[in-house]
């Protein structure tokens, strides 16, 4: 095989790969149907934390709140609530909502899982 043929084949291969990547990433990407809450969009994550905060204002169950927030990722609950609070401050959440998030943040900053309390 002459060098010009080899170059032609390599070019064809490169074009094919490029088409394959464009098709697989852009035109027909893998569709996810069973995602976990940790990949929720920032506004949905903030709303999820806000719902937890609203519930916490009624039941004061820090354990349940921590379990709910833990669904959003492996970071400490206080960190997740802090991110949501930052988002809330930047996106026009009401004072009541921000207050609820602050209350939850305080609770999560002082929260100790039962396992840690009773090793």
């Amino acid at each position: 095989m002459s060098s010009s043929k080899i170059i032609t084949v390599v070019i064809a291969l490169a074009i094919g790969i490029a088409f394959g990547l464009v098709y697989g990433w852009v035109i027909e990407p893998v569709e996810y149907t069973d995602v976990t809450p940790d990949v929720l969009r920032a506004d949905y994550r903030a709303d999820y934390v806000l719902m937890t905060a609203e519930a916490y204002q009624t039941d004061f169950d820090a354990d349940a709140a921590a379990r709910r927030i833990a669904q959003l990722g492996s970071q400490p609950p206080a960190e997740i609530v802090s991110s949501a609070l930052t988002y809330a401050n930047l996106n026009g959440f009401t004072q009541d909502e921000i207050h609820a998030l602050q209350t939850l943040l305080t609770a999560m900053q002082t929260y100790q899982p039962e396992d840690n309390l009773n090793p």
Partner: peptide, 30 residues
């Protein structure tokens, strides 16, 4: 060569490095 390249590109984009979801909608939750 074009077809082989296309297949390789597809395998990479679907199997080895698929699109990662970072901004998912709640409707997609398990």
């Amino acid at each position: 060569a074009l077809l082989i390249g296309f297949g390789l590109g597809l395998a990479y984009s679907w199997l080895l490095s698929p699109v990662t979801y970072v901004d998912a909608h709640p409707a997609l939750l398990r």
